[in-house]
Design a protein around this nucleic acid. Structure first.
Lengths: 155, 155
DNA sequence: CGTGAAAATCTCAGAGA
DNA sequence: TCTCTGAGATTTTCACG
């Protein structure tokens, strides 16, 4: 079937989340199968949609954007006529890292990385708040972001 | 120096964020240099800390955890004696995808992926709120998460 | 799921701009 | 300092058992 994962699949997912470039030969050895088998497992995981992409992670600090923040946006009226273009707009901003469309009074959380507080301030005033559909904005500075690898079905 | 990026570096960062497994030969061709040069560029980007990792992205929905949420935690007293163990605890939860340590009254935002609302509910009651240092928790459901590739220095 | 061999790629030393 | 060429070493990949 489509969602059955055995222990080999789970090990592969774990290893490739830590290093997407792990050579197939090494991957095979670490999970205890032949390289051809590992290759087919990885392909299957991609086909079934469990692995969606292989991505390089870039350090925004090294890129000259050491300051991260979350912008909580309230959009009114909350219709797709307004929401869809806004989403496209936000994702088009070079400062944006991620966008969460959330339930509750704050409709969007925008994760941004910027060079400094002044840049953030100007960006908010000159590019975000000028949009009339945004009726409220709250800024939260991020001290630190940490990510985990995702394991299989929990609990 | 350490932070200078030319247009080739920027193209490489862009391409590898979209596909970390792009063969070096193809990468070289796309950015217009010899394979050996592309190889050295990528190594240099890693050495200089611009590329921090190559990771496979896993679909939490396909993994049986279709529901995402953000948990805003307030920790009191906000001392490293309490905060550091809490951070380790949260990052150890299998439900956790990411952890933001933020400024403001909500000290932490925990991004989680769970099988369903019931699981989320039980997790919060039985594993989070039982910790006495957590004096407040607010749950925000996520309808949709979207990520962008990170570009070079902004505006 | 594994074996084995062909095809493709990676990687480095050496040379050149 | 940065890049390219060329070729040997390694890996990827597939047909078949």
């Amino acid at each position: 079937m489509t969602a059955e994962l055995d222990s080999i699949d789970r090990k592969i997912l774990d290893l490739l989340q830590k290093d997407a470039r792990l050579p197939n030969k090494d991957l095979a050895e670490r999970v205890g199968v032949a390289p051809s088998t590992a290759l087919e497992r990885v392909r299957s995981l991609r086909r079934r949609g469990l692995i969606t992409a292989f991505r390089a992670e870039v350090d925004t600090q090294a890129l000259g954007r050491p300051l991260e923040a979350l912008l909580a946006l309230r959009v009114r009226p909350h219709t797709s006529q307004l929401v869809d273009p806004l989403r496209a707009f936000v994702l088009g901003l070079p400062e944006t890292i991620a966008l969460f469309h959330v339930a509750g009074p704050q409709d969007f959380l925008v994760h941004v990385a910027v060079p400094d507080a002044d840049h953030l301030h100007r960006m908010i005033l000159e590019r975000i708040l000028v949009r009339p559909e945004i009726v409220h904005l709250e800024t939260t500075l991020i001290f630190r972001t940490e990510r985990r690898t995702v394991q299989g079905p929990v609990g």
